[in-house]
Write a protein that binds this DNA or RNA. Structure first.
Lengths: 300, 300
DNA sequence: GATCTCCATAAAGCCGCTCTATCGCGGCGA
DNA sequence: TCGCCGCGATAGAGCGGCTTTATGGAGATC
């Protein structure tokens, strides 16, 4: 016969209450059930644990040695399982997400605040990186979720949500282009551009868009961070193109941002996870909040 | 649904082997049984623990957190239960015994040596004390077994074995009484006696025996320890009466011991335990060895 | 494209647990 | 001293769940 948790719990209850009858009541069992449980436990262990007669229950010396061990063990186990249920309910746990810097600085903060308001015990790990690294981190399971741009055609990834991020031309307030009614692809030709490095998702979109009309961008300056690009623009070095979601298009003084009215200037944005992996419960709520925020921020 | 040890063991086996099929083989179960076990465990916890598809099993991030906790807990539990089985088999544990000093110095050493030869991991606690204290320690369960003299008529004690210890007259080699063919009760009258204190079992026997012929002992000296009594005898202070089992009657030079040929000079010896209490397994073997030794040493 | 592997599912059978009913025994009150 | 009460043990019936066999389906391999 194998030992079961039920038997152990029964034993501990009887030791605590010094009575089969009372322990049975506490465990919502009949008294004969407990008798059988203890009999089976003793048989399985080959040791008498309780000396019982018609009026009293006493713990054997051997049983007494076992009690603290069992109490500690069962206590640890129960504590771990309670913790786990918390995690399972999404009330605790860590959300790991990789995102392009533009999203890490715009979309994510509000989503995280929303989630933490609902479940203050949640922890978040945000890895901001360029598109290829975001995909790599999702694939290697360093993170559970990834928010990245471009078209993801990876058999190892699931696309949970897909939307587009309109690109904006960012220029000095005084720049003549601000007077045009609409800004199109051809307006960018020959305009000195401050661009992010090749390989970033925005740069890829721009290069591809200009390629469709047989042109290449006129690069005034290449920078790594959008923040730097904006500073260049403000200094009068040229204009730049940034995603509408980017925080930099909103908070900077002396510059303006206008959507580029061309379907090619919409950057795909996807929320991805690794195919075949279950999201931790905490990440489920985060995912939903992300999708909601993406709808709100990028479609409006 | 309640969590069971079987489910936990199944989970750990699958995690270890990364395969339901192989884990099933290891646990001597069919593979569907494991599938159901894991399904029930996950349902009970409300968390997905294993990501499994048609070719691979991966532990969920949540499951991975649980693994070390479960391993430690189950390991502790199993270790405790293995220990307990050792104790149950009488291979480990502590034997607690109270005994009159005469037995603690004569009978017990050989019994303990015998037991330890069979099970070297056994530990022994010997409390040597006078009869009333031996009984008290058994009643209060300070010890599991007691070896004492006199008649025990205590409803709270079980007599496991009963025998008698012949009393001997101990005298100087040159003492005239050594020339008698047999030594009887009346030979003790008027003989200066070195006696142990009133209340000890041997003294009680002597007093009671002389009382039957209306006499009281002629006390040359009262001592506490038998060893002292023997020393007094050797110094020529008188003769003394010691149980035949006592070590002192054998090892001392210059003195002799002769049985007293009178039924009153047989001290009852009993092996007792507390009624209603189960002896620890280790004590069972000890009890049997004691009984065997008592037969050998006292009846022969 | 056939086969093999591996996990999931379905249905049946069996084992064990629990429950109700009852007994036995010791304590306690009248 | 007798009878009641309390408590644990036992017996037998019923039910639930676990396990097993058989089978399905999807992906990998050759």
């Amino acid at each position: 016969m194998e030992i079961t948790l039920r038997q152990i719990r029964a034993f501990l209850a009887i030791v605590q209450l010094r009575s089969f009858t009372r322990a049975a009541a506490m465990l919502h069992l009949s008294q004969p059930a407990l008798t059988v449980q203890i009999r089976n436990l003793e048989a399985a262990l080959g040791v008498r644990l309780l000396d019982r007669d018609n009026r009293a229950v006493e713990v054997t010396r051997v049983g007494l040695e076992l009690v603290p061990v069992l109490q500690r063990t069962i206590g640890d186990l129960d504590a771990a399982l309670v913790d786990l249920r918390e995690i399972g309910a999404g009330r605790r746990g860590t959300v790991r997400v990789a995102a392009l810097p533009s999203f890490a600085a715009s979309l994510l903060p509000e989503v995280i605040v929303t989630c933490r308001r609902a479940n203050p015990a949640l922890a978040f790990v945000v890895r901001d990186a360029i598109a290829s690294q975001v995909v790599a981190m999702v694939r290697s399971e360093d993170v559970d979720l990834g928010i990245t741009g471009g078209v993801v055609a990876d058999a190892e990834l699931d696309v949970l949500h897909e939307t587009t991020d309109q690109l904006c031309l960012v220029f000095q307030e005084a720049h003549p282009i601000g007077r045009k009614r609409r800004i199109g692809l051809r307006d960018l030709v020959d305009l000195p551009l401050v661009l992010t490095n090749p390989g970033t998702s925005v740069r890829d979109v721009i290069d591809a868009a200009l390629m469709t009309i047989g042109r290449t961008p006129t690069v005034a300056c290449e920078v790594t961070y959008m923040m730097s690009a904006v500073a260049m623009v403000r200094a009068g070095l040229g204009v730049t193109v940034l995603p509408r979601s980017a925080r930099e298009t909103r908070v900077e003084r002396g510059i303006r941002a206008r959507a580029i009215d061309d379907p090619a200037f919409a950057r795909p944005v996807v929320l991805v996870k690794k195919k075949g992996r279950t999201l931790p419960p905490a990440s489920l709520a985060f995912r939903d909040a992300c999708i909601a925020a993406m709808r709100r921020a990028l479609r409006s």
